[in-house]
Design a protein around this nucleic acid. Structure first.
Lengths: 336, 336
DNA sequence: CCAAATTTTGTAACCGGTTACAATTTGATC
DNA sequence: GATCAAATTGTAACCGGTTACAAAATTTGG
């Protein structure tokens, strides 16, 4: 039985009050006598009334919706991040719309246009590398937006994230500190992600005499990590450590090594990047870099909401990651 | 420079045309002379005009937004599913809003109210087990909705998914067909998911003389699978096979087994459920049940959009899963 | 060249809320 | 009980589009 839902004028009629009063009750009910409030609330229940969101959005110019455009949601730290954003927004009655860009700037632009035309008030982007038209669009329309998963204080928009370069550098230092002189670095497509490029730069920066660094680009999934590892095991002198720019890649490396009959960390050390929820459970437990995905989601959410609600200015935030030492990296054994 | 964005009346003024004509141009431009269209489009660009979504939604009663409420997005098949829904919706200009219920009916209800008050036109739920008030809400307001990840033709709303019971049963038959007489079943919290309960019922149905079935409830993540497996390895007579209701659980089992020095499948067989993108990459490759998450997302999306756009009635769809044989299950070796 | 049919354009009434401002009621004080 | 301030309620003007219907312009064709 789908009887027509009530409108605010019906509620007003039913209670003998004016629509203004009903509206007041629906929005916190400040300056309304308790008696009136009860009457209105009862009528709402009875008439099955809920304020029309479009009408409300039209008169207030607020939709309480924020959009996140992410490169991918599958098998990665993004799921954790998105969950955190959603949680943070939901706390204050905001909703999250998402779009997936597949790491493509044009797709990202198209998604943003769609979401803008859908009512999104603010945008969460990944990285600092975007279509120029997208930035124009945001600037011209005054749409608040932040870059995330990156920390780059000089970027066009506030960046809320971690310093990929420094973190990758720290990992390299950790590895060389354990005596590794030949390290393979596994990473996803460089063209698709400035975060990956930053990490590469960080790893590169650790370069010095007596250190051999092999970079291998592969697809950003377990299969990619496995295939790349298999390939590098073919080569005559294999690295003593494999540094993966993602735990997912590291998982693939672990499997490839296991299949090749090599022990981790005795024969080869493996280091990851992300610290996903299962990273401590692998055999052996993965040494990796913890990324503050949950804190990042919370920070991004609250900053945007504070800005939308109170005009608090947006600002860059540097969240710190940290090496989490587990069992997959060991000091290199002297040989030759 | 954030100059105020143009409204439709500004465009009308700028072109010397009426707002009706501008509106026509913005919506397909049927019955508009090419000359006029060009003039309007130029003015739009020049004035930086985009139709206000709230105003449009108010007068058309359409928001082109559908909501999905899922139990979790992390470490599971849901990410793949959500990506597919988003893809399908984006094709036709629809947007996806998501909320996470953590498997709690009250949270789900609250999320639905929020999303309804945000403009969502249709809902995608998981499973068939929901708060009675939620169903009332949908029925009273005539909100289209489907249940997914489940197939249950008699349910209150159309269910679009696979038959969890039959699939679990098939997996059990596969395992017993390989000579397993003692099987441990690892599953997530029964109270949180009717899909889990269905799978349990399916596994239970395979029960017969000479078959020992041990059910173990654990947390639905790698750590849970690992812990449960460790625990069951303590017991005096260990199972010859472990059937996990999720590949994530199976991954945990694999790690626990590896740490215990047991070989898969020689010592213990492991079977999963989901067929995530990495399931074929584990060592050994995981025998599992493929769930059509991508097709499910597409089906859910198109059904809802067809219904919203053309009134096509919604209907249940049974998608089929299938056992994918890989290396983690072997015929039981005779012993005692 | 004019009438009728067709296409293009304009007018104005919605859609369903919020909110500034005015009007009314309540109640406190003398 | 009269006066004035504070609290409550009402009136009506928005918000910015869409669209039914009317009017004007254009095309058709006899």
């Amino acid at each position: 039985m789908t009887r027509p839902v009530g409108k605010i004028r019906d509620v007003a009629k039913a209670t003998g009050l004016s629509i203004a009063t009903v509206s007041r009750v629906m929005n916190g009910g400040k300056n309304v006598s308790p008696n009136t409030r009860d009457k209105v609330l009862a009528a709402c229940k009875q008439l099955n009334y809920l304020p029309n969101p479009a009408a409300r959005a039209l008169s207030t110019s607020r939709s309480k919706t924020v959009a996140a455009i992410i490169p991918t949601i599958e098998h990665s730290i993004f799921a954790k991040y998105i969950a955190s954003i959603e949680h943070s927004l939901a706390q204050r009655g905001y909703s999250l719309v998402i779009a997936i860009s597949h790491g493509d700037l044009d797709e990202e632009l198209a998604a943003a246009q769609k979401l803008l035309g859908m009512g999104a008030e603010a945008f969460i982007l990944s990285g600092a590398d975007h279509h120029p038209d997208l930035l124009d669009l945001f600037t011209q329309r005054g749409v608040p937006h932040v870059y995330s998963s990156i920390w780059q204080p000089a970027s066009a928009a506030p960046s809320i994230g971690y310093d990929n370069t420094a973190l990758a550098r720290a990992a390299m230092d950790y590895l060389t500190g354990h005596g590794h002189h030949h390290i393979a670095v596994l990473h996803g497509p460089l063209t698709e992600s400035d975060r990956t490029r930053d990490r590469q730069a960080g790893a590169q920066a650790a370069q010095r005499d007596g250190l051999t660094l092999d970079f291998h680009e592969t697809s950003l999934d377990v299969a990619g990590g496995k295939a790349a590892t298999r390939a590098l095991l073919q080569s005559a002198n294999r690295p003593s450590a494999i540094f993966c720019f993602s735990d997912v890649l590291a998982l693939g490396a672990l499997f490839a090594l296991s299949e090749a009959g090599l022990r981790v960390p005795e024969d080869v050390s493996v280091m990851g990047f992300d610290n996903l929820d299962w990273s401590g459970e692998t055999a052996p437990a993965l040494t990796t870099i913890n990324l503050p995905a949950t804190r990042m989601g919370a920070e991004v959410g609250t900053q945007l909401m504070d800005h939308l609600d109170n005009g608090t200015p947006l600002g860059p935030v540097r969240l710190d990651g940290a090496i989490v030492e587990r069992a997959s990296v060991a000091p290199v054994t002297r040989r030759g």
